[in-house]
Design a protein around this nucleic acid. Structure first.
Lengths: 350, 350
DNA sequence: ACAAGGGCTGGCAGCGCTTTCAATCGAGGA
DNA sequence: TCCTCGATTGAAAGCGCTGCCAGCCCTTGT
């Protein structure tokens, strides 16, 4: 109940509270002897500085906030994608925060509607976080970015659609990833490769399609318009669009879906059509979601460095909150993806 | 940068800061006229009370912390289960917090090892959260519970193993759920029903097995020991244990796995054996994880009210932090589960 | 030997709020 | 009419810490 304060430690160590403060903050200009004595007293008393007091008195709050879209979370919280993506984001950030003595605050933001401005402003005013990690679609929300800038709160945009000039970002190269996966399929001998596009509201959807198209064209393969189908990241849409592809007179020998859920849908469609994966039709996904390993056959897919992105983001923010000013050039971290070759892709039937 | 303080609002409204404080906290004894005037001034200035200051001066921090096991998160963060469970926990709690003006803090706790005590103590001292939501295995960790009690921090245990007497809890009846699912299988005509137990460190594993055994015995069906296989909640273990079951001279006509991942493993094993689900062998799971809908056939499973549990937990904590003292009898909320009948269960082959 | 420049410590004034308690104003009761 | 009580307001005292600055000591330079 009655917790240990800095005064208690100071008294026990026989120093002033200012010295205790110095020790707790790892400031220089404290003799090792003093430091030891204070540390001993602190640990004996089980002292831990009060965050609110630190935040109120000083310029740091030791809090990193993560902005997550409310509608998205609620709509999609049952889908593989949402849950998985968010967990990974959190894992990366939480680990970094814990090690640095920071704390992670999750905030649901309602991006639709007119109250965003007020909501976010209130949040920033109340919390004064040392940094904010923006997940899509926050990463591209003009209002949010403006308020953050105006409040002077450092932030990092994770996986944003729009390019530089909008503040620090940590992302991966969706175009290259899709291109490489397409190259992989072409390398196996596929020439007729169908593509299922993701939910158009996500920038990643366009990027992945572009990568696919680039790779096809680079190899001189024509891409009839009806090979590129519009999905929405759900299993169901993958199922339907794959069915449509399979119904074509000259059906594709491979299907590349922009995420794993849709790829699983495609595998289901292939099975429903009495065909085999990858014997008759290869399937590639994107995300390396947990279920990509549970499917039969296991899915060839692209692993996104989601946890890594948020952990880099958290590190940047913490570093900055410690270091003080922004001495650096604009941050633009590009993290590597990985192609995961599993069993769902193989050479086309000859 | 320079934010709006209570003084600014007080000045603008022509009242004392105390009155502004009263209005912001919805305290009684403020004339409607004053209240209006203050509210107007506050909204014009875009004022939002500083959380740290409130927490430092007052007795509330407006922060609810969620304790999550670190090892679990890291080990299993790739598995369906971990990610899904956690997201749901967070969804429920975050929504409630947002509506109540509270904030959700995620804390990774390292339950193994000797430093738990110090780690948790430091956390509580630093944060002074108004409440803590304990997820398994925190829900049953003696050290954590003791520290929480000693610090006087209210908490709610979500889905704990051990029964009452250990503080408030919100949970579901795993035994009944497993019993009902088993009854469902028996009702379809199955008599030889194999069971795959989950990771033994989880209380839910025992509970579900017990429910299965109860149902079998209640119907007078004997359960040879080798029908009950030890898994560990992973797809792989489900696959292996199901293989073992299928290899039995008189193989079961149904397999009930204590979670969906293992159930998916069982479906894969059945397919590998050249058999059909549910034509030859029915499969039931537990969790209603996203991928339970993506499997072919779609999985019959039990939906746990995870988001509901955490949302109830958050509500209880917020209520208590507002209401003040603990006037109530020990909290013990039992939330209903739901059997989800999908395509993986059917009558046994005759 | 003396001044200048560090390294090390403590003092003190808040940070922006809530709490406690005192003060003021009316209305109802003796 | 005077007193009491409740409803309203405000003043002052911190909450536990950090930022700034003054003061001390000991080293170094000349």
């Amino acid at each position: 109940m009655s917790s240990v304060t800095i005064y208690d430690v100071a008294a026990k160590a026989g120093v002033s509270i200012k010295t205790v403060s110095r020790v707790m903050n790892n400031e220089p200009n404290v003799r090792p002897v003093m430091r030891e004595r204070v540390l001993a007293a602190a640990s004996e008393l089980g002292y831990s500085p009060n965050l609110s007091a630190r935040s109120l008195a000083g310029s740091r709050s030791f809090v990193i906030a993560v902005f997550v879209d409310a509608a998205l979370t609620i709509d999609h919280w049952q889908s593989e994608r949402g849950a998985d993506y968010l967990s990974r984001i959190q894992l990366g950030a939480t680990l970094v925060c814990r090690d640095a003595g920071y704390h992670l605050l999750i905030e649901l933001i309602d991006h639709e509607g007119p109250q965003v401005r007020q909501e976010v402003a209130a949040l920033l005013a109340a919390l004064k976080p040392d940094g904010v990690i923006l997940t899509p679609p926050s990463s591209d929300n003009a209002v949010v970015l403006e308020l953050l800038d105006r409040a002077g709160t450092p932030y990092v945009r994770v996986g944003p659609e729009r390019a530089e000039g909008l503040g620090p970002r940590v992302h991966m190269d969706d175009v290259a990833a899709a291109r490489e996966m397409t190259d992989h399929l072409i390398g196996l001998g596929h020439k007729r490769i169908g593509f299922i596009v993701g939910e158009p509201r996500y920038g990643a959807s366009q990027a992945r399609r572009d990568g696919y198209l680039e790779a096809m064209r680079a190899k001189g393969l024509s891409v009839p318009e009806f090979w590129v189908r519009q999905g929405d990241f759900t299993f169901q849409s993958g199922l339907e669009q794959a069915k449509a592809l399979l119904a074509l007179p000259e059906r594709p020998t491979a299907i590349f879906a922009s995420n794993d859920d849709m790829a699983l849908g495609a595998i289901a469609a292939i099975a429903d059509a009495g065909l085999m994966t990858p014997g008759d039709v290869s399937v590639a996904g994107f995300d390396d979601s947990p279920s990509s390993r549970f499917s039969r056959p296991q899915l060839t897919t692209v692993r996104q460095p989601v946890a890594e992105m948020s952990s880099v983001a958290a590190k940047l923010l913490i570093e900055r909150s410690r270091g003080g000013a922004s001495t650096e050039r604009p941050v633009d971290e590009l993290l590597p993806f990985t192609l995961i070759h599993r069993a769902s892709t193989a050479p086309p039937p000859r």
